[in-house]
Amino acid sequence: MLDIILAGVGGQGILSIAYVLDYAALSAGLHFKQAEVHGMAQRGGAVQSHVRLAPGQIWSDLIPAGQVGLVLAVEPLEALRYAHELSPEGWVVSSTAPFVNISSYPDLSGVIGQIAALPRQVMVDAASLAQLAGNKRAENMVMLGAAAFLYPFPPEAALAHIEALFQAKGEKVVALNQRAFGLGQGASSIYREAVEAGLSAEQAIALCAHLHPGEVEPGAAARWAGAMLADPSMPWPTERVPATLAAAP
């Protein structure tokens, strides 16, 4: 059972994430309910969707406060908007790339710090990873991938429904979005391994920026983390290097 709040700004593709989760859940034999926001709020306002996945019957379309297992946010300020609904064991998986369409947008490092203060979190730069996949608009699929370690179905089920979602737009668009999903998965595992190895959230974000999340080997991020902790003044590679054991210090 997993209760998810999808968070973002109108136009960021929250409902496409929801589409993939819904169909992947159904194909895995799970029950689901997914409440979303239409209408006025979609005009550049804060939007969210409640996605509930469970092996048996689900009653409420809304997730009870305090029972959210995952806040999956395409935007960091929007991740914080639902933090109080997280269960004590809940995860926040958020992009670090801000969507600034309000004059009162707070200092970004403060926002990142507030997310880092939550019990369990993953932060990836969805904007640069989407760019790496081939299109800035694939930020939503990056984030879908970044939280894949928590889904009650295998990532292949998500990839199959990414294909279904984009097939009308052609093979290239399908491949791009599947690539974005994979990069999100890779960056997420780098972040988690780095934090596990003792890096701060900010350091883990910095490490993610220097490793290529397309090629991730278990243990590589931990090796980098160890090196960083041993020598904080260690020079960074100028280009992303593979997150492989061979390429690690």
Binding site: P64, L80, A83, S87, P119
Partner: peptide, 29 residues
């Protein structure tokens, strides 16, 4: 919502990761 009905049933609120909404800049449409 489930929380309001929970309170009306006399049940204690479910514990959450943080106790209250964070004071954040609004993002109206």
């Amino acid at each position: 919502d489930p929380a309001k009905v929970r309170a009306a049933l006399g049940l204690p609120a479910r514990p959450a990761a943080i106790p209250a909404p964070l004071p954040l800049a609004g993002r109206p449409p």
